[in-house]
Computed example of a mutant assay.
Amino acid sequence: MGVKIEVFRMMLYLSFPVTMFWISNQAEYFEEYIVKRKVRKSFKRKELEDFKERMRVRKEQRLLKSEN
């Protein structure tokens, strides 16, 4: 009985990483999760850059008002 359990455990240990590798390399998974995530990330980066620019302009205006 001990050999059968060891064979089962070894198959389980080997099948899990192989299955996860196979699932993660599916084209649908890659497109749905990775590509869409990058698009959202670039959109957030654009929003952050716009915010920084608005804050920079606001600070410059405040400094110009305080000098006058």
Rank of each mutant, 00 (worst) to 15 (best):
M11A: 09
L64Q: 12
M11C: 09
F8N: 05
S24Y: 10
R37I: 02
E67W: 12
E6H: 05
K41Q: 11
E31M: 08
E31G: 04
Y29W: 09
S15R: 02
K38C: 11
M11P: 00
S24I: 13
F51I: 02
L64A: 10
E31D: 14
K41G: 04
K59A: 07
Q26I: 05
K41C: 06
D50R: 04
D50N: 12
S42T: 10
L12S: 10
V39N: 05
L14F: 11
S66T: 12
W22E: 03
F21A: 06
K52M: 11
E47A: 07
Y33A: 04
E28L: 05
P17G: 00
P17Y: 00
M20K: 00
V35I: 12
F16R: 04
L14Q: 14
K44M: 08
I23R: 02
Y29M: 04
R37D: 09
I34S: 03
D50Y: 04
S24D: 08
K44T: 01
N68S: 14
V7L: 08
L14R: 07
L48N: 14
F8M: 08
E31T: 06
R45C: 08
M1V: 04
F30I: 10
S66G: 00
L48H: 14
S66N: 08
K4M: 07
Y13E: 15
K59P: 00
S24P: 02
K46A: 12
R58S: 15
F8R: 01
I34E: 02
F51H: 13
V39Q: 09
K38M: 13
L64W: 05
W22A: 05
F43A: 14
E47K: 07
V39C: 02
K59I: 09
M1C: 02
R9S: 11
K52Q: 15
V18D: 01
P17F: 01
F43C: 03
R62M: 10
I34D: 01
E28F: 10
E31P: 00
L48M: 12
K41P: 02
A27N: 10
K36R: 14
I5G: 02
K65I: 15
A27S: 13
G2N: 07
M20N: 03
E47I: 06
R62F: 10
K41W: 13
E6M: 11
